Every structure is written in C-alpha cells, then in structure tokens.
Amino acid sequence: MKDSVLKFYDAIAEDYHLIFVDWHLAIARQSEILNNIIQSKLGLSSTHNISILDCSCGIGTQAIGLAKHGYDVSATDISAVSVKRAEKEAESYGVKINFGVADFRSLETDVTGLFNIVLSADNAIPHLITDEDLYKAFQNMHAKLQYNGLLLVTIRDYDAMVKEKLTTTQPKVFDDGKRIAFQVYDWAGDGKTYTVNQFIMLEINGEWKTTHNRTEYRALLREEINKVLKATGFVDVEWHFPVNTGYYQPILTACKN
C-alpha cells in the first residue's frame, strides 16, 4: 500500500461526507442492507453480543449505522485523521464504538480479541496493489474472526469496470448546484491499476472552491479475490450484487472454517 493512500484519506476526512447526496441517509440505508446480509448469512435472532470489526472504517459510515442496529462495533482505519472524525460523529449519534488506528495488514497484532464479523467496505481492499499485501490483509482478517465468523467486503465491480475503462464519473450536483463531486480515472498502461482523482467543488459566497485529492487502486477481479480467499482459509465465498441487494457496490461474504 502506497503512502498516497494515507495522504488521501487524511486530506479528505473533513470533506468526505460531501461526496454523498446525504451522508446521514447513506449511513441508515447502507447499514440496513448490511444488516440484512448479516442476518441471512448467520441466521441471527438478535444482534445482541454480536461483535463486528470494521477494519477500514473511514469516517464511520458503516460502523455508526451497524452500532445503531445493536451490534458491538470496533472500528479501525489506517488514517488517524479519519478515525478522529469518526469518533466525533459516533458521539453525535449517541453510539458507543471502540475506535483505533490500525492497518488491515497487521490486524492480528494491532487489534485485540476475536470477532463474529470482520467488515471492510467502500472499496478499501483494492488499495492493496501487490499480491503479497492482498494475502497479508486477508490472512489478518481471517485471524481476527471467531470460528464460523463472517467476512464482509464491499468493492467496485471491476469485472465490468476493466472492460469499460471509464475515464470519469458523471458529476453529481447537489445543494441546488452549489456542490459538485466527480472523479477522473487515470489508467496504467497494463490496465490493472488506476489513479482516482477526486474533485469536490463548493460555491461559497459566490466564489467556487475546488479540492482535489488522488490515490491509487488495483482493479481486482472477482476470480483473483476468490483465489486469495481460498488460499487464506475462507470458505462459502458468495457475491451479492446491487440488482439484488440495493447496495451501491457488490458485496462479498465468506466464512472462517
């Protein structure tokens, strides 16, 4: 994982909510869908005493929503700036979450205890450019799960994306035209990695302010991920797609045997 990843999330932490139409609504909607997936996979009658480690929590989008559903949530991220904001947001929501700073390649040593569920959402895994880092991350997630625990990952549909080779997203216009967010993609020559340029434009007192941050991703195909999951001890790998779930990204589930 390159230094640009940490720099990106540190820089965007205070403005991250601005890429959503309504961040608070996203918290509610995403947690509802993730909760439904968890319930269907684990057959739970109650969320009481069910522990979750959100190991790429960002500013708390999923962690806060799942805590409101009654899960016992711990949340970590490589960006201390993002974690600090997540703590503030969790307090405003009145939910208790155990926060910490950790790299998901070293969870086994950085985080204490075992969990019923390990979650990594919002396309965080593809920041791992090398096979070595990818294996290391899934090994550490496997190590933090209890027996029969559930891994939950959300990721862009790279199987479709690598075929289309999109170079930009459609600008999202919010707040009666006073807020605009969009991304520009710079693809590497081999088509396996790309740089995201995130632009957020705000009109303030008649003047426009533009922020630009960039980071690198690996276009991870489902076959590649499935291979690593199998090699690191996961079973019952299943992909759940937006057409069926209503979630904005494909959701991967797998179990620790």
Rank of each mutant, 00 (worst) to 15 (best):
M1F: 12
M1A: 07
V5D: 12
V5T: 12
L6R: 14
K7V: 07
Y9P: 10
E14H: 06
Y16S: 00
L18A: 08
L18Y: 10
I19E: 12
F20T: 01
V21S: 08
A26F: 04
Q30L: 02
L34N: 04
L34E: 08
N35S: 10
N36S: 15
I38N: 03
L42T: 00
L42E: 10
L42N: 02
S51V: 00
C57H: 04
T61A: 10
L66A: 09
A67L: 06
A67P: 07
Y71M: 02
S74D: 13
S74Q: 07
D77M: 01
I78S: 14
V81L: 07
V81P: 09
S82L: 00
V83G: 02
A86F: 03
K88M: 10
E91Y: 11
Y93S: 03
I97W: 05
F99H: 03
T109A: 12
T112V: 09
T112S: 13
G113M: 03
F115N: 01
S120C: 09
S120Y: 08
S120F: 09
S120K: 00
D122K: 06
A124E: 11
H127I: 11
L128Q: 03
D131H: 06
D131S: 11
D133Q: 06
D133T: 02
L134Y: 13
Y135V: 06
K136G: 05
F138H: 13
M141W: 14
H142M: 06
L145Y: 06
N148D: 15
N148R: 12
G149D: 06
L151E: 12
D159T: 08
K165H: 06
L166M: 10
T168P: 00
D175K: 15
I180N: 05
I180V: 15
A181V: 06
D186Y: 01
G189F: 10
G189M: 08
G191T: 01
Y194P: 00
V196I: 15
V196C: 05
V196N: 05
N197H: 15
N197C: 09
L202E: 13
E203Q: 15
W208G: 04
T210H: 07
R214H: 14
R218N: 08
L220N: 08
L221E: 09
K227H: 10
V228H: 09
A231N: 13
A231Y: 06
G233N: 02
V237Q: 04
V243K: 11
G246F: 09
Y247K: 03
P250Y: 10
I251R: 03
I251Y: 06
I251L: 02
L252D: 03
L252C: 12
